[in-house]
Design a binder for these strands. Sequence first.
DNA 1: CGTGAGGTTGAAACCACTCAAGAAGGGTGG
DNA 2: CCACCCTTCTTGAGTGGTTTCAACCTCACG
Lengths: 259, 259
Amino acid sequence: MSRSSRDRVVDFRSRRSCADCSLRSVCLPAGLARGELQQLDQFVQARVPLDRGDVIFRAGDPLDYIYVVRTGSVRTVFPGSEGDDQVIGFHLPSELVGLDAISANAHQCDAVALERTSVCALPLGRLERLAAEIPALQRQFHVMISRQISHDHRHLVAVGRRTARERLALFLHALSERLESGGYSGVDFHLSMSREDIANYLGLALETVSRLLTKLAEEGVIRVERRRVRIVDPDALARIAGRPLSQPNDRPPDHSSVH
Amino acid sequence: MSRSSRDRVVDFRSRRSCADCSLRSVCLPAGLARGELQQLDQFVQARVPLDRGDVIFRAGDPLDYIYVVRTGSVRTVFPGSEGDDQVIGFHLPSELVGLDAISANAHQCDAVALERTSVCALPLGRLERLAAEIPALQRQFHVMISRQISHDHRHLVAVGRRTARERLALFLHALSERLESGGYSGVDFHLSMSREDIANYLGLALETVSRLLTKLAEEGVIRVERRRVRIVDPDALARIAGRPLSQPNDRPPDHSSVH
DNA sequence: CGTGAGGTTGAAACCACTCAAGAAGGGTGG
DNA sequence: CCACCCTTCTTGAGTGGTTTCAACCTCACG
């Protein structure tokens, strides 16, 4: 378990630069000129791909980097004593990880890869310094932070005032949308997280999640086979999830609308 | 959209400047030199004191300002159709309000004063521009944003994995700490929010909150009289609230679980 | 003094949890 | 390649913490 993929310090440069990255338009480089982009590129560190279970940082670790998920997915967990941890969020490509660390200058939660995952590491100090020079970068950084807050708030609504069934539907619905906006299929996808993770995230028992997934499948809303999920009836799912909790009119100007 | 209390633009300068403000050291001016502080001061707008129920902004309103609570308290609510709103947070002095608006350039929730309240309004654009010039301001802005994220995460833990009793204890405990760090008494204070607000915030029924408050009072942990709360036994309260979610590595594992 | 909003208290119903057992992969070593 | 184990997931039955429904209380205010 100890030295899984860490030893392979092959400088695995699948990511040549931000300019070549498919996330360019939704990630920090959004709106940057070529020269500015190169400045950013200078200190963006691509990490060796992480394997399932690999730890990016742990609660208490000093804050050195803010991370962006490039591919794969990351789970952040607020550690409690005796394994009653709380899953705070799942992070998909283009999402920032570690923002809650800035205030205390140390990470508040653990971040773990849920599958084969690659992340970009950004030294916060340098990022801030460059953001001070490039307004567009500063703007985009703030937008991405705000997106995180918005997302957390929507999740709070889900956990606070919804039934188990609604929470699960909302979870699947939101996941579907996020995957789609990241260029993946929002109809047929793989859950990188376990039932236990989902349950914990939604404030439910894992048995409840399992039961409800089965139920939704019986009703013809989705199809489930292990971690493979297919959304058969998106409208029904949206209906169960409740009225949309917000209008994500958060898209960049050049929207090739997926509707 | 609705500019209910916006119209009363009586230039009520009870706040002379950031330099004179008691929140100086925990608010945006933290760490700023005198000259820098004056630059900030130029566009910080003090608003007429708001009364209970006055609206600062509503979901959908264009993002013009980010707000800081100076005195009083503010409730942010994620509006749902048919009054099944969700209270997202209560904001006390020195806390930012409206951060989730940056990504969509429009507010995502309603912000309402819970009592006589004064806020400072900061034009986001100018704040960002000045932050680009003054590293200490940029830093502090990010710290305050991060604080908000941290706080939301801790609340998520509370709502997700705690019993009603624990949630309420945690709420009172956290409120007490926040009040104290703001210079108010953390032992004897006034709840500016109704039972309904508290219940909604904690994902509970208001009857449950009422019952549990009574119970905690019967047990001698607190004293309650209408909205006046006195914490009689802070240790007991902390114990019920569970391991402190605020400090990561603070005290040894607490094996006396209450179940 | 009515009147109503906000709060308390009681009883019954229910949703989700816990406990428990079994099924279904996915590894791993023989 | 098979047997075995272990993790993950599913399914069932019973319990219980919270909610819901409903009545009553109590201030504040006109």
